[in-house]
């Protein structure tokens, strides 16, 4: 154990913060690997789910492992399909841990560059909901294109969607949009600047 690393930005307390936010004690994971075996995207991740759990266990003594977890591509690739939680013999809610790590990663501005498009899509989604209260699919996709720079993606899909009546040119709106605005302003991420 090293004692000189307590000022490390990720901090040795990451597992404690995960426990506080999710109720999941990562120390209980005994590395059986069933989560990684079931995870549909394990092969596309930099660390499969069981290794993320291991990183959190090790982070108490070695803060650089906390950094690896927070900067991982894995936490953004997790689809929350819940198969890991379903099969975990210790019943650890790993998807909830992934949520908590995503929130930490955002707050500490440590998001993996490879996750740029995924995060851009989520942000475009919430922008749309904040404006109208309901998702406006076309607005969201345009917002996503601007954020991600993928201007040409799905250019042929849109006319087809319009022809079969799946693409609306005007958004559906919630009547009480001022309340929606207040809700967004009160939630945890509201004080952070949305890029």
């Amino acid at each position: 154990m090293r004692s000189d690393n307590h000022a490390h930005p990720a901090g040795p307390a990451l597992a404690d913060r995960v426990l506080e936010k999710t109720g999941v004690d990562v120390a209980r994971c005994y590395q059986c690997g069933k989560c990684s075996a079931g995870c549909p995207l394990a092969a596309d991740m930099d660390f499969p789910p069981s290794q993320v759990m291991h990183l959190l266990q090790l982070a108490a003594g070695f803060p650089e492992y906390a950094e690896l977890a927070l900067r991982s591509h894995t936490i953004w690739l997790c689809l929350t399909c819940e198969i890991c939680y379903c099969r975990c013999p210790m019943e650890l809610d790993i998807p909830k841990v992934m949520d908590a790590l995503r929130h930490e990663s955002l707050a500490q501005k440590k998001t993996n560059p490879k996750a740029r498009d995924i995060i851009a899509f989520h942000r475009a989604f919430l922008d749309s909901v904040r404006t109208t209260g309901r998702l406006f699919e076309m607005g969201q996709v345009i917002d996503y294109k601007l954020r991600s720079g993928h201007f040409l993606q799905d250019m042929l899909q849109a006319p087809w969607m319009f022809l079969v009546g799946k693409l609306h040119l005007l958004p559906e709106r919630v009547r009480d949009r001022r309340l929606l605005g207040r809700i967004f302003a009160r939630t945890s991420k509201a004080k952070e600047k949305r890029p």
């Binding site: 953004w76 995503r102 929130h103 989520h122 919430l126 909901v129 309340l179 809700i183 991420k189």
Partner: peptide, 25 residues
Amino acid sequence: PDWNCCGATAAHNLDPDLALALPAR
């Protein structure tokens, strides 16, 4: 009446309060 979006994947990925608030409303 006057339902809103549930927040879907985006809300629980980015904002834990929003992920509960939107469905709660």
